[in-house]
Computed example of a mutant assay.
Amino acid sequence: MRTYIAKFSLTAAAFVMGAHGATAQQTPSGPCDGQTTGSCNARALTQPIDVSRPAPLRTSAYITQVGDQNQASITQNAGQQFASIAQNGERNSATAQQMGDGAAYLEVDQGGLLNSIVVAQDAAPGGTNVALVEQFGENNVILLDQTATAGSANGAVLAQNGSDNHMKLQQSGSDNRAELVQLGDNNTMTATQNGSDNQLQWVQQGNGLSDLQIVQSGSQAMLIVQSNGGS
């Protein structure tokens, strides 16, 4: 566990730079209402996150696999798309689809047994999607769907470590940012960002934590931490 945390903090630092202020910050009412397991703390971000990565100059794809029965695929259809998938372990799968006429940047790092990552990125001309996805452990799932409008950029940093965790993020619109982290077992996260200028940092650390099913509809900033003694 400590090896993973150190690795994530280093890679995330390259993506998450609290540099630019948000035009507005608003917390949806009661994101922790109905929580039945673990503790929950939600508030507006004190330092808005910013996920950035240079747009690729040309389309390129890389797959590296070590282990048995791993599967990976990358589909691209435009001129400024970059995807890299690295897998180490057994029976893991990773699928990346980069569509549209805009730019896309994706890094996937996965290790363990029976893990699955599915990423779909679609950008209009002048739009950009950026994602860093890391997953380690057994039987974990990450689903990411990014759609960027013209002249905008969506960014996501997603990480899981443990067993039987499930994470799903959908970004649709412009200039949305999300950083989701799960450490433990049997945890679930579902988040949706619609509209523009949403920012979300969500951490689950423990076992069996509740899925808050966060929905942001525009110009909203949230920091959520869930934990219990299970990890």
Rank of each mutant, 00 (worst) to 15 (best):
G151W: 07
A153S: 14
Q26G: 00
Q201K: 02
R91H: 11
M189D: 03
T37Y: 02
V133Q: 08
T128A: 06
V51H: 06
E90K: 07
Q201L: 07
P54A: 09
G18W: 02
Q35W: 00
S231C: 08
Y105E: 12
N165V: 05
G195W: 04
L180H: 04
V51C: 09
S84H: 13
Q69K: 06
A61R: 13
A13P: 00
A96T: 15
L212N: 01
Q71H: 14
N115P: 11
I142P: 04
D101I: 09
N161D: 03
G21L: 08
S60F: 11
S196A: 15
Q76K: 05
L212W: 02
A12S: 13
L114C: 04
N140E: 05
P48D: 11
A96M: 13
L114Q: 14
L113E: 13
T192K: 10
R53T: 08
V119A: 14
A72Q: 04
Q226K: 02
Q135V: 10
L223Q: 03
C40N: 01
R58D: 13
L132S: 10
N207E: 08
T188N: 06
S152R: 09
T3I: 05
N186K: 04
G173C: 04
Q121H: 12
S116T: 15
N176D: 13
S52C: 03
G21Y: 05
